[in-house]
Amino acid sequence: MRHRTRARRTAPAAALLAATTAAALTAGCTRHEPPAGGGRTPTRTAAPPASSAPPAGSVLAVKIDNVSAARPQTGLDAADVVYAEQVEGGLSRLMAVYATKLPRTVGPVRSARESDLELLRQFHEPTLAFSGAQRRLLPLIDRAPLHAESPDEAAGAYYRAGDRPAPHNLYLRPARLLPSAPGRPALTTGFRYGPAPSGGSPTSARTVRYPAARFAFTWSARRHGWLVAMDGTPTVTAGGGRVAPATVVVQYVRIRSSGYHDVLGNRTPYTETVGTGKAEVLRDGRSFAATWSRPAAADGTAFTGPDGEPVKFAAGQVWVVFAPRS
């Protein structure tokens, strides 16, 4: 796998870090990230020599902040797939995957987690945009089959917004990482799109809860999608539009402690996305029972109904919420 060489911090990246460190020290270090910066240091061992840019056709995955201070987010409505995961303290974070088109701006961008690397193995040479990571996790990111693009590798693609406090103010200009999106839906995950399966149960709303966060989805016939609310607040973009994915998947997974922790000593949850388990697919105002299966990390995730047939998704955006299985 090819990666961008990380032999030293570039001057623009160092300036970006220096400009935000003072603000971060006031705001406090948040979980895995070093204070509002990229998280890499000039003294770490460089990765093997690599290509200088992601390949054509690479999907873009962006880690997006999801605490109240980070809302409303920018560019969330343009993603093909949005993954919701549990992080430290029972809070949530998002990963948006862009395959059909690239928005002008995405953010706020935040740090990566160990389980992100397993999740992204479903995509061929994806580009991961993130603000930083815990020092011990960085070598794993370097060895993963993806193109890691933090502010240290691509300082010109990021900027700090002046209307929000650090660390909730880092934004990405995707066009400065990739010349274009692949132009087709993110089907490498194993997702199938098509007409709704038969059966299912009429469903108007569904809520998924984490210890300190919750996601609610309410069916809108007018929007032909599921209106999203997070922590009791309607989810809107920075432009004011409601986010309403056509399909919502509640995927029940094992969430265990990883070998990493935040600055307060809280263990980082690890979301296991390889294996099998129960799922619920919401589309067209109905709920469909399903089983998810992903035998190996390089495999896509398949969803099948009780009849053994694939459960197809509606055309449009898909949200996958990783819910803790009982």
Rank of each mutant, 00 (worst) to 15 (best):
Met1Ile: 08
Ala7Ser: 15
Ala7Cys: 14
Arg8Cys: 04
Ala11Asn: 12
Pro12Glu: 09
Ala13Val: 05
Leu16Ala: 11
Ala22Leu: 15
Ala24Lys: 05
Leu25Gln: 07
His32Ile: 06
Ala36His: 00
Ala36Met: 00
Gly37Tyr: 10
Gly38Thr: 06
Thr43Leu: 08
Thr43Gly: 03
Ser58Trp: 08
Val59Ala: 05
Ser68Thr: 14
Gln73Gly: 06
Gln73Thr: 11
Ala78Val: 14
Ala79Gly: 06
Ala84Pro: 04
Arg93Tyr: 01
Thr100Gly: 05
Thr100Ile: 06
Arg104His: 14
Gly107Phe: 12
Val109Met: 00
Ser111Ala: 15
Ser115Cys: 09
Ser115Arg: 12
Asp116Val: 10
Asp116Ser: 01
Leu117His: 07
Leu119Cys: 06
Gln122Tyr: 00
Ala129Tyr: 13
Ala129Leu: 09
Gly132Arg: 08
Pro139Cys: 09
Ile141Tyr: 07
Ala144Leu: 06
His147Pro: 05
Tyr158Thr: 00
Tyr159Ile: 00
Gly162Val: 02
Pro165Asp: 09
Pro165Ser: 08
Asn169Ala: 00
Ala175Cys: 11
Leu177Phe: 02
Ser180Asp: 04
Ala181Glu: 06
Ala186Trp: 09
Leu187Thr: 14
Phe191His: 12
Phe191Ala: 14
Tyr193Gln: 08
Gly194Trp: 12
Ser198Pro: 00
Ser201Tyr: 10
Pro202His: 14
Thr203Glu: 13
Thr203Asp: 05
Pro211Asn: 05
Ala212Gln: 11
Ala216Ile: 08
Ser220Trp: 07
Arg223Val: 01
Trp226Ile: 07
Met230Val: 11
Gly232Met: 01
Ala238Glu: 10
Ala238Gly: 11
Gly239Lys: 15
Ala246Asn: 07
Thr247Phe: 00
Thr247Trp: 02
Val248Arg: 11
Ser257Asn: 11
Ser257Phe: 02
Thr271Phe: 03
Thr271Ala: 01
Val274Cys: 11
Gly277Arg: 13
Lys278Asp: 09
Ala279Lys: 03
Ala289Arg: 11
Arg294Leu: 01
Ala296Ile: 01
Asp299Cys: 02
Ala302Gln: 13
Pro306Val: 05
Gly308Trp: 13
Pro310Glu: 10
Val311Gln: 08
Ala314Met: 03
Gln317Asn: 09
Val318Arg: 10
Trp319Gln: 02
Ala323Asn: 09
